[in-house]
Design a protein around this nucleic acid. Structure first.
Lengths: 153, 153
DNA sequence: CTGCAAGTTGAAGCCCACTTCAACTCAAGG
DNA sequence: CCTTGAGTTGAAGTGGGCTTCAACTTGCAG
């Protein structure tokens, strides 16, 4: 009955759209067996992989990086609690760093409200290379890839 | 000499590429006078607008929302320190909320490392609707726009 | 055995925040 | 005046993370 999951079931249980699950599979984030009729059947352990993907996204990690992390899991055996804990720990550091940067941004913002500057030069607010938010998806956010900017001297 | 700024000067001083500045102008985030020969000349106060845009992006605000915020500035006169402080304060709350959510995520992650679950159902980690990271740019991240998901029941 | 929801594919589309390009014009120093 | 770097435009491209579509096949309840 619930030996394995259809894509619809995995979608419902993970809160991730089927199209996204197929996309994740293309990227190598999750895997599926196939039925005789070529339909995907997911092992229950894939739920944990999906969970890891979504949580990682919340930390601001790109799918490519998540894939690399997942690739470091043992492929021979089903990953253990320790395996997952190890992965989560690396994210934890990233998360802490993000929290630190955002806290700094908030405090700097407070300071700038006080002094009324809001200036690129005087404030520590505009510290390029950090990219606090929006690390995940689209375009290069805080600093463009070209050499322009980077030193607000 | 530095009565007004060319786009190159504004780019250098703000660390934002000229193409991005033109893009911001199209979106109504910044404004420029024009010379007889149709070249942009920026008032020095535009530097502060650009700073506000970049800082807001770091808080995870979309350009559309930033535009709305900037539209609330008085158009008749040059915005005062108080005007900027008011805007910054609204972001401060968002920032605090983000910090709160990320801290929660970290603590939950700690808890899940301990208990080894990493499960969508048992953990508070997977709390849809939050979208901690990557709020800025691309696609809908944590929850897809369709009704799918949303209740990990 | 049939009907229909649920699954399959590749290709295309979408959104955001830009960048790049081509073809051209402007501004200013020598 | 002439050159050259900086600026102008609209259109198209990029990248990440998906969704949507069309055309088709499977799987299961009745």
């Amino acid at each position: 009955m619930h030996e394995s999951l259809t894509i619809g079931q995995l979608a419902t249980r993970s809160g991730v759209a089927p199209s996204a699950l197929r996309y994740y599979e293309r990227l190598g984030l999750i895997r599926a067996e196939r039925t005789g009729g070529n339909q995907r059947r997911y092992a229950r352990t894939e739920l944990r992989r999906v969970a890891f993907v979504r949580i990682s996204q919340q930390v601001g990690i790109s799918l490519e990086e998540i894939r690399e992390a997942l690739d470091s899991l043992p492929s021979a055996r089903t990953p253990t609690t320790e395996d997952w804990a190890r992965l989560s720990l690396t994210w934890r550091e990233r998360l802490n760093e993000k929290i630190r940067l955002m806290t700094k941004l908030r405090d700097d913002l407070d300071g700038c409200i006080g002094c009324g500057c809001l200036s690129l030069q005087r404030c520590t607010l505009y510290n390029p290379g950090d990219s606090l938010a929006g690390e995940g998806p689209g375009a290069r956010l805080v600093l463009p890839p070209n050499g322009r900017g980077a030193d607000p001297a």
